[in-house]
Structure formats: C-alpha cells, structure tokens
C-alpha cells in the first residue's frame, strides 16, 4: 500500500469520525444532508458485498466494516435518534436523491468489468459514490451558516478523493497491468465536484472569515 492510498483511507476515516463526533457529542446533525448519508450507506452496502466472497487483508476487512457500520448508524441517528433528528434541516435538504440511483444502475448494467451480479453492483457503487455528495453540496449552499465541523467533514471527504487519484497515478506507474477505467473516471468526476467547495473553503480560510458559499 502506498502513502497516498493510506493517507486517503485515513482522511476518509477522519471525515467519518468528525461526523460521528458532531452527532454523538454535540447531538446535532445540522447542515448534514441525510440524502447524501443514505446514498453512502447504499454505496458501501453494494460495494462491499465481496466481504462474503473475497478476503484481501485484515486491514481491508476492518475498514470495510467501519465504513459500512458508520454509514448505516449515521443514517439511523439522523432518522431516529430523539435529539439528533430534531436538528436535521429537513426543509432545506430537498434533493431528490432517488433519481440519481436509476441512471447509475443503468450505467452499471451497460458499463462494467464483467456482467456478473457482484461486478454490476461494484460498478453501480462507484457511479453512485461519484454523485452522492451532490445533496450535501446543495444543502451547504442553502445553509447560510456552515459550522466548522460540517466544513471540515466535507473538506476531509474531498481530500480523501483527491488522495485516491494520486494513489491511482502512483499505482499506474509502479504496478504492471494496473488499469481501472471505471474506478478512475468515476473517481475523477467525483473529485471535480469538490473543486468549487475547495476554492471557497480556502478563500475563507485565507481571509480568516466564516465559510459561506455563494447562492
């Protein structure tokens, strides 16, 4: 495993920890999109079906279980926890996320590495992950006051994606036969979606003002 991959996984892990910290200690999910969290729960459930079929490493298995467990429990907290759910910005979080799933499924049926159930689900999870952040970005734009934890959560998620792109470049040059077009294209699309957010985040950080996205 190279340093970019490890750093990518760690930023992903930190993003989840930041979100859990916000939910557990502050008992708030203000500014967090339930739609995006539901999409992530679906992304990890469909991608990690290979937990039952292929063993890669203990690290891999543990990380998969963490991402599965955390994404599902975050959805549960936002929907059912009696305190946390009250802070959910339901009226602002109106992205019709189910509409993203059908095109992703159709694309996965058409473009996959092999036409098997696991491979189609795997491709579906990559396409869906690429667009899963959209409801969150829309919600950020609508929320006038973005708190620090929410800003850091999205920043860490974006950093995780950018580090994965560096990891692919590194692997392409150091490993033989390492070519994964589906992962790369959907991963680059996903990273580009963060570009705008990065820009405003660093502007606000540089000028030492509160993060606000233009309407």
């Amino acid at each position: 495993m190279n340093i970019f991959r490890l750093a990518g996984d760690m930023t992903h892990l930190f993003s989840v920890l930041v979100l859990l910290l916000k939910i557990h200690t502050i008992k708030s999910c203000a500014g967090i999109s339930l739609k995006t969290q539901e999409l992530y729960a679906i992304v990890f459930t469909t991608r990690y079906l290979d937990l039952f079929t292929t063993y890669i490493s203990l690290y891999n298995t543990i990380m998969k279980l963490i991402f599965l467990g955390s994404s599902i429990s975050i959805v549960w907290y936002m929907r059912h926890h009696k305190v946390v759910r009250r802070s959910y910005d339901k009226d602002q979080d109106t992205f019709r996320h189910y509409l993203l799933m059908l095109p992703c499924l159709l694309l996965a049926l058409l473009i996959n590495e092999k036409f098997t159930f696991l491979e189609v689900m795997w491709a579906f999870s990559l396409y869906l992950e690429a667009v899963a952040i959209l409801p969150q970005l829309v919600l950020l734009q609508r929320t006038r006051n973005i708190d620090n934890l929410t800003g850091q959560y999205v920043l860490l998620l974006g950093a995780y994606r950018a580090l994965y792109v560096l990891n692919w470049i590194y692997r392409y040059f150091t490993e033989e036969n390492y070519v994964h077009w589906i992962t790369w294209v959907s991963g680059i699309v996903q990273t580009l979606l963060y570009a705008d957010f990065f820009y405003y985040y660093f502007q606000s950080w540089k000028n030492n003002v509160k993060l606000q996205l233009p309407a």
């Binding site: 996984d9 992903h12 292929t54 891999n60 990380m63 998969k64 991402f67 390492y178 994964h180 992962t183």
Partner: peptide, 10 residues
C-alpha cells in the same frame, strides 16, 4: 492477482 487488483481499494 491481476483481476482483483483495484478491488483491494476501498
């Protein structure tokens, strides 16, 4: 293996 390279990522 070649086939599963890439599937080792999260």
């Amino acid at each position: 293996t070649k086939e599963s390279a890439g599937k080792d990522e999260l």
